[in-house]
């Protein structure tokens, strides 16, 4: 049987490499009974469309995004609470534990099965003319965000002027001076050459994003136990590789971007953390238990 594994990354991206690895591992584990057809570069649609496809049984598995997933399971958006995880390994530990299991259960109510969590990196702010090392620097900054409520909340708490804009319109909008800057993981910034327009990169690391690997529930339930195990195992193994690449990615990208004219600065994370505390209060009203559990798990 053919399994379609779809994702939105292009060649060279850690997600692309990991998807190829997943195909290899899964196929080998099922003794070649199942072949995997990897569809990269959003050829099966964008993240939201891939999730619809997986739920509707059009594709089987997708390495997706936190933003798109949170349109179905809003709780997944909480992983992006500001400065929640002190580093990537902490985030991984939380996702591979009880929190991950809880999110999976919620996803299954909506026709999706979470096979595991890969990485999408930590987001940083780029500015056209200055660093934003202190929260005060970011006040009034016109910053483009994805259409994601959590990100908008974070920058509103900081006193900036966030406005959501389609990714495809971002480079033109930055060039036109409508925005002072934007925020993204370094991989995205580098691949879209955004550092050429906004060369001042401040390593705020304000928000973590995962790459949930998701299967259609009806497909999943039709699998025998051994094949289910293969899918979980393949996700885990390919995930190790992907997380490793993701961790190294930031370290190797920085000198590359510097060579192309980007300038880097660190941010005063403690001050930022305090300035964004109100975001926690807002979400704690909606999801008191989960926010508490996340904070606790992240602190361990």
């Amino acid at each position: 049987e053919e399994v379609i594994f779809a994702h939105g990354a292009n060649a060279g991206n850690p997600r692309f490499v990991a998807a190829e690895k997943w195909a290899e591992l899964f196929s080998a584990c099922t003794d070649g009974k199942d072949t995997v057809n990897v569809a990269p570069s959003a050829t099966m649609g964008n993240d939201v469309e891939m999730l619809t496809s997986a739920t509707g049984g059009v594709i089987q598995v997708t390495a997706n995004s936190q933003g798109a997933m949170s349109q179905i399971v809003p709780e997944i958006g909480l992983l992006g609470l500001p400065f929640l995880f002190k580093d990537l390994p902490t985030a991984w530990k939380v996702l591979d534990g009880d929190v991950g299991a809880m999110l999976d259960k919620r996803a299954q109510d909506s026709g999706l099965k979470i096979l595991g969590f890969w990485d999408n990196g930590i987001r940083n702010v780029t500015h056209v003319s200055k660093f934003v090392s202190e929260p005060a620097d970011i006040k009034g900054m016109k910053i483009r965000t994805p259409p994601d409520q959590m990100t908008v909340d974070i920058f509103e708490a900081l006193g900036a002027a966030p406005a959501p804009l389609a990714w495809s319109e971002l480079p033109t909008a930055l060039q036109s001076g409508v925005f002072d800057g934007q925020e993204n993981p370094l991989t995205n910034i580098y691949s879209a050459k955004l550092h050429e327009i906004t060369p001042y990169v401040t390593m705020t690391g304000h928000k973590y994003e995962s790459t949930p690997v998701v299967a259609g529930l009806s497909w999943w339930q039709g699998l025998d136990e051994k094949t289910q195990g293969c899918a979980i195992e393949a996700t885990k193994e390919a995930g190790k590789l992907q997380r490793q690449m993701s961790l190294e990615g930031d370290e190797t990208l920085r000198p590359k971007m510097e060579a192309e004219g980007a300038k880097f600065a660190e941010a005063d994370k403690k001050a930022y953390q305090e300035a964004t505390a109100s975001v926690y209060e807002k979400y704690a009203k909606q999801y008191p238990d989960l926010v508490e559990a996340l904070k606790k798990a992240a602190a361990e």
Partner: peptide, 12 residues
């Protein structure tokens, strides 16, 4: 149906 819908979701 899903692919018919896709182009209508593009902002440009």
């Amino acid at each position: 149906l899903q692919r018919l819908y896709t182009p209508t979701q593009s902002f440009p």
